[in-house]
Design a protein around this nucleic acid. Structure first.
Length: 274
DNA sequence: ACGAGCGCCTGTCGGC
DNA sequence: TGCCGACAGGCGCTCG
């Protein structure tokens, strides 16, 4: 599912309660069960079971698309990749079909990492930097300024779409929010990054932030067969709207493939580079 | 430095 | 109805 707004929505629900569950803060882990080996990136299954036991959930943070569950001694880091979700259910409920890893909490609740396509990953580490240290800036933080963004764009000579999807360049954008941000900024996905002038860079900077903020306010997007609570999918301007009218100019939305990803844009509002 | 192609997985949808 | 390919919110790897 998960781009920044969806991960942020899950983080808030786990921390403050929501999506039909209580907060997991302050709970101690009494039991753990790994149902798909490859879901656990680190450490070994045996060490994981031993180490996580009795640790208390102290806080929940997010870095890009990574969820950081701060425990007494370690951090449990989760990346949901394409189809992952984190759900809190009562322990009396049966384990769900695609649950890959779950933790039994002292409240009698179970925190389940459900992931149909098995691309998701979990790490239990003492130092989170080991996992998230290479990420680019957080787009919604104050120190991510238009000036810094413009300089970064000019430090590369890459097509905008693949560059924005590169998590070492900027953290948290995925296929949906990238297409939406480029449309809002009226920039074609194949424009070369260092050709943007300062006003175009600033437009892209503010579009990225606005789209992400809007996604968070709408509690993310729920698409495909999984309901996730958010309704941002009803407000897409280009994503999955191939052939439909651009909300700005009325021209049909076009779909091309860029870096093996479906890419949606308005051919009139987002003219191609020469 | 950069882009293309592929692998990892399961499921849905549309065309024939 | 059944089969088959295309496609899906991600990312790490190789190879030019």
């Amino acid at each position: 599912m998960p781009e920044l707004p969806e991960v942020e929505t899950i983080r808030r629900a786990l921390k403050n309660g929501g999506r039909g569950a209580e907060s997991i803060l302050g709970q101690r882990v009494l039991e753990s069960c790994l149902l798909w080996e490859r879901t656990l990136a680190e450490p070994s299954s045996v060490e994981f079971q031993r180490r996580i036991l009795k640790q208390e959930i102290k806080d929940l943070d997010r870095r890009g698309k990574f969820l950081l569950i701060r425990l007494s001694a370690d951090t449990l880091i989760i990346h949901l990749r394409m189809s992952g979700d984190l759900i809190v259910v009562n322990h009396s409920k049966p384990v769900a079909t695609h649950d890959r890893l779950w933790l039994g909490l002292e409240s009698g609740q179970r925190l389940a990492f459900n992931d149909t396509r098995k691309f998701g990953r979990a790490w239990l580490v003492a130092d989170p930097q080991k996992v998230v240290g290479g990420l680019g800036p957080e787009p919604l933080e104050d120190h991510f300024t238009p000036q810094i963004f413009h300089q970064s764009l000019h430090a590369h000579r890459r097509q905008l779409k693949p560059l924005l999807l590169d998590q070492t360049f900027i953290a948290g954008l995925g296929n949906i929010y990238t297409d939406e941000a480029l449309h809002m900024a009226q920039l074609h996905p194949l424009i070369i990054s260092n050709s943007l002038d300062t006003s175009q860079s600033k437009r892209l900077w503010s579009s990225i932030r606005r789209v992400l903020q809007e996604g968070i306010e709408r509690q993310g997007a729920s698409i495909d067969w999984v309901y996730r609570g958010g309704d941002f999918q009803n407000y897409f301007r280009v994503y999955q709207r191939t052939g439909e009218a651009c909300l700005r100019c009325g021209s049909p939305i076009v779909r091309i493939t860029v870096g093996q990803r479906g890419t949606h844009f308005c051919a009139k509002c987002q003219p191609p580079p020469e």
